[in-house]
Amino acid sequence: MSNSGEQPNPYAQQPHQPPQGPPPPPPSPAGPQPGSPYGQVPQQQNPYAQPQPPAGYGYPAAAPHGAPTAPMPGAGPAGYGGGPGGSGNTGKGMPSWLWALGGAVIASAVWAGVLAATGGLGGEPSPDLRGYRYQSDLCRSTSWTPFEDARFKMEDSSTSDSSGENPESSGHEDPALDSMWCNADLVSEDAGDNDYSSTLLYSKAFLHKKTDPAPEFAAQYRSYAQERSSTHYKVEPVRGLGDEAYLVTREETADSKGSYVVLGVRDGWLTYETTWSSYSSSNNSGRPDSTEVADMLRTSAKETLAKMKG
């Protein structure tokens, strides 16, 4: 059967129809975008999008969706998103925060060692006793030779005013402080029968096992110079005895009938003190003055401290 006229081809390309409505907007100054028949279309703002931080805060700029991101060179502090020229990794793929953690651990270990050595971790500092030992009888360890050379001897305990032995010693051992004392009554061989005289020698020694006596040692002797009374004292350092030593002398006048001299020595954590106190009813020319007494105390202290190490 013949068909009248030509049948339409359903697969044939339809002629291009112009778009309906208003003409398209002119292309943007940047030129038409590929694939867009109307040029560049302004991007609509997403009200739910996260705001991008300004440059310089160490965050990489936003990349198109699906594109890999890379940190900005030099952005952010080292160990937190990258250091100079970095990507946040240090060494062979090790993150910078791990390097920082390792440095903190090492620093903590060093500091802990320092505290342990100085007793800052609850441990007690090691006392610097310089080889000195507790003496159960300090009088036996005391050197009496300088006083004997000056013609002084021990007063007979049966005739002295003191009760007990002469010399007399005492002491006490303690985990914190060892204490030792020696008291002696001396009499001058040159004293006359009608001359009343009294010479006392007090010695004491301490082994400090918990606290270093150095910070306070000098202050207790310098305080003599601040004495506000009719009695005046002279304080002077002494060389050649321990770490530090001080000599305290009561100033004498023309009518002085006695002398008072104190010698204090610190050697490490040991402190030693000896005091000379004398009185005479007459101005006997044979009585030693403060300068001679100071020489006797220095010599005796040096020899006594040597014995305390034996």
Rank of each mutant, 00 (worst) to 15 (best):
N3F: 13
P10W: 03
Y11H: 05
A12P: 01
Q14N: 08
P15E: 12
H16P: 09
H16W: 11
P18K: 15
Q20N: 07
Q20R: 09
G21L: 05
P25L: 08
P32Y: 02
G39K: 01
G39P: 05
Q40L: 08
Q40Y: 12
Q43W: 04
Q45A: 12
Q45Y: 12
P47A: 05
Y48E: 04
A49C: 12
G56V: 05
P68N: 03
A70P: 00
P71W: 02
A75W: 03
G76F: 03
G85M: 14
G86R: 05
G88A: 06
G88K: 08
T90L: 03
P95H: 02
P95R: 08
S96P: 03
L101T: 10
G103A: 14
A104K: 09
I106F: 14
A109K: 13
G113L: 13
V114C: 04
L115K: 15
T118M: 04
L121D: 12
D128R: 12
R130D: 06
G131T: 04
G131K: 10
Y132M: 04
C139D: 01
S143Y: 00
P146G: 00
E148N: 12
K153M: 00
T159C: 03
G164P: 03
N166L: 01
H172P: 02
E173W: 04
P175M: 13
A176L: 11
M180V: 08
D185T: 10
N194M: 14
S198I: 08
T199W: 07
L201K: 01
D212Y: 13
R228T: 11
T231E: 12
V238F: 09
V238E: 04
R239M: 07
G242K: 01
V248H: 06
E251V: 13
E252A: 14
E252S: 15
A254W: 05
L263P: 08
V265D: 00
T274I: 15
Y279K: 10
S280R: 10
N283Q: 15
D289G: 15
M296G: 12
A301D: 12
K307N: 15
G310E: 11
